[in-house]
Design a protein around this nucleic acid. Structure first.
Length: 124
DNA sequence: CGGCTGACTCTGG
DNA sequence: TCCAGAGCCAGCC
């Protein structure tokens, strides 16, 4: 497994497009991404698969697990550390120095999408 | 068609 | 709070 299959690429691109729209300092969950691709029914697992082949210009660190934990931690402690560092660098707050959970109440991206798939931040 | 595999999520102990 | 188990579903042998 080193490259996404032909059938996956289209779907993955949609996921990447959405992820690129997440503002710095904010995060979304896999399930949130899955439910935010217009016209396509995705599962959180598929989003995870897409993240496995994420291009360099996609802020993958802004996608976290439900509850703010970092699913990559189970597979790669190194990547977990990198993700934590990247997020901290853009101001994302963690529950504690010892914890690897993002403070979702403070950093989760709240948004609304229109029919065209365009996203708008919903800060109140 | 059957079995395996997840950068997931939820529930229960 | 942490850990296991089960459900999930598309994609790939």
């Amino acid at each position: 497994m080193s490259t996404p299959s032909e059938s996956e690429r289209d779907l993955f691109e949609r996921v990447y497009t959405f992820v690129r729209s997440i503002p710095p300092g904010k995060v979304v969950t896999y399930g949130q991404v899955a439910g935010s691709i217009p016209g396509v029914a995705l599962t959180a697992r598929q989003v995870g698969a897409a993240m496995g082949y994420v291009p360099k210009d996609v802020p993958w660190q802004r996608v976290v697990g439900a509850n703010g934990f970092l699913p990559i931690a189970k597979r790669s402690p190194e990547l977990k550390l990198l993700q934590r560092r990247l997020l901290a660098g853009e101001g994302v707050v963690f529950v504690s120095e010892e914890s690897d959970r993002v403070d979702m109440a403070r950093s989760q991206w709240n948004y609304v999408a229109d029919e065209t798939g365009s996203l708008f931040e919903d800060e109140g």
